[in-house]
Design a protein around this nucleic acid. Structure first.
Length: 445
DNA sequence: TTTTGAGTTGTTCGA
DNA sequence: GTCGAACAACTCAAA
């Protein structure tokens, strides 16, 4: 047996963690580590780092303080740790986004034999295949094949951990305080499980209807927990039934898996256009309007509410993500990656596969290319999905005195002047036509 | 190999 | 106010 090392990556939990269970079962004692990539830490936003700080703190607590956080060159660090603690075997879960894959390649090149078990997905990317062995590029057939493939049941937390207590002097401390005025949701496995319980009681059964209304508690908000692996999608799937509300939630989980699968097959699409011809389109350069978008000062209430929610919480409701993304690409004519980068900086659920491909979908250059005419009207979307203006008023306080009937077009309201709210920075009807015209240009080729 | 049907989330216009 | 049709052409999956 000997001593095992468990490498925590995007699986910051003890429950339903087969790789951890293997490490524990196959070692007399186990050293548990997390490797912090200093480059990423320095590049990443404060929101994300603050969330990760708390998640690691929670994880360490559940490991009785025995989590060893290391940093520095990955292979060198592994070499030192293995030698110092007399490690006989290394266990971890696989990753599939480019960064994680690269880590695995690096360690393999350096001669490490790592026992990989599982992944952050119910079904590992690459496993769901067409009958001819190819990969799916359309969601619905992927979903059917994904369901047909099936996944295993969750497993329990190991009984006895038998952890090695790391030396204090080996610990590297990374700490990021939550930025002032920002309220992040609670990180950690316990919070994830509690949130899922709450969602099952209050939300899941109405998910198909309510998930579109950002002003009500209609969604699970599990995305940050999934992103860091504080809960595994299998744990969620195991509790879903076969009714339409649960089915819609299952489909959302499948979207996460679909995009991971697509990125696995086309790793360059983290930054590059999935449909290359869209790179040829005429775009604007980020300017004052981009800044207004970032700050939530576009004069379109639902857009501004969304962007301000992002700044206030490091999270944005999915319906609103689509609206603000459509606005950036179709109304401001900016390339999708400007928005995607900004999202990555502020979102605590900043998953590269879901983010890049979510943006590409909105921009029309992604998988399942949206019809060219699908351009969100930010005013109509507001009316439809925030009819009472609840969401808008929460994040755009200037508009709290504006009557509901006028809140989606406040510049037409008598209450507008007093409100101090900005005028729309563009004319949506015009920009819609402009967007269609630019699209027509690349069609001609 | 060829053919056929379908493709997350929308908007506008005119009856 | 409500409703259905039109809005392109193309790519993908599967028969």
């Amino acid at each position: 047996m000997g001593k095992s090392l468990f490498w925590f990556r995007r699986d910051l939990r003890l429950g339903d963690n087969p790789a951890l269970a293997n490490a524990i079962a196959n070692g007399d004692e186990t050293l548990v580590i997390f490797h912090m990539d200093a480059d990423i830490w320095n590049r990443a936003g404060e929101y994300r780092n603050a969330y990760l700080t708390q998640s690691l703190k929670e994880l360490s607590k559940s490991l009785s303080g025995n989590l060893l956080i290391v940093s520095g060159d990955l292979t060198k660090t592994f070499q030192e740790i293995v030698k110092k603690y007399n490690i006989d075997q290394i266990h971890a879960a696989k990753q599939y986004a480019p960064f994680g894959v690269n880590q695995e390649v690096q360690l393999e090149k350096a001669g490490f034999k790592i026992e990989f078990t599982g992944s952050p997905y119910a079904i590992a990317p690459g496993r769901v295949q067409k009958p001819d062995g190819g990969n799916y590029r359309v969601y619905t057939p992927f979903y059917k094949a994904w369901v047909a493939h099936g996944w295993r049941k969750p497993i329990a937390v190991p009984d006895k951990l038998n952890l090695i207590s790391p030396l204090k002097k080996d610990q590297v401390n990374f700490f990021q305080e939550v930025p002032k005025g920002v309220e992040l949701q609670t990180a950690g496995e316990a919070a994830a499980l509690a949130r899922f319980e709450e969602f099952k009681k209050n939300g899941l059964n109405q998910y198909d209807e309510m998930r579109n209304y950002p002003g009500v508690k209609g969604v699970s908000r599990l995305s940050p927990h999934l992103r860091w692996g504080e809960i595994h999608p299998r744990t969620l799937l195991a509790d879903l039934k076969n009714n339409s509300a649960h089915e819609v939630f299952r489909k959302e989980i499948a979207w996460r898996e679909f995009y991971a699968d697509v990125l696995h097959h086309y790793p360059h699409t983290t930054r590059d256009y999935y449909s290359p011809k869209y790179a040829e389109m005429r775009y604007e350069k980020p300017d004052g309007k981009f800044k207004a978008w970032c700050e939530g000062k576009t004069g379109f209430p639902i857009v501004d509410a969304g962007m301000r929610q992002l700044l206030a919480e490091g999270w944005m409701h999915n319906r609103v993500r689509m609206i603000v993304a459509s606005f950036l690409v179709k109304d401001l004519h900016l390339e999708w990656h400007h928005g995607a980068n900004y999202f990555m900086k502020y979102l605590i659920d900043n998953d590269v596969a879901s983010n890049s491909h979510g943006w590409q979908w909105t921009a029309g250059c992604g998988t399942d290319a949206s019809p060219y005419y699908r351009i969100f009207n930010p005013i109509e979307q507001g009316r439809k999905f925030d009819p009472e203006g609840t969401y808008i008023k929460k994040y755009v306080p200037e508009l709290r005195e504006v009557p509901v009937e006028e809140i989606h077009e406040p510049h037409l309201s008598n209450a507008w002047k007093k409100s101090g709210y900005v005028k729309p920075i563009v004319d949506h009807a015009l920009e819609r036509k402009e967007s269609l015209a630019r699209l027509a240009e690349i069609k001609e080729n």
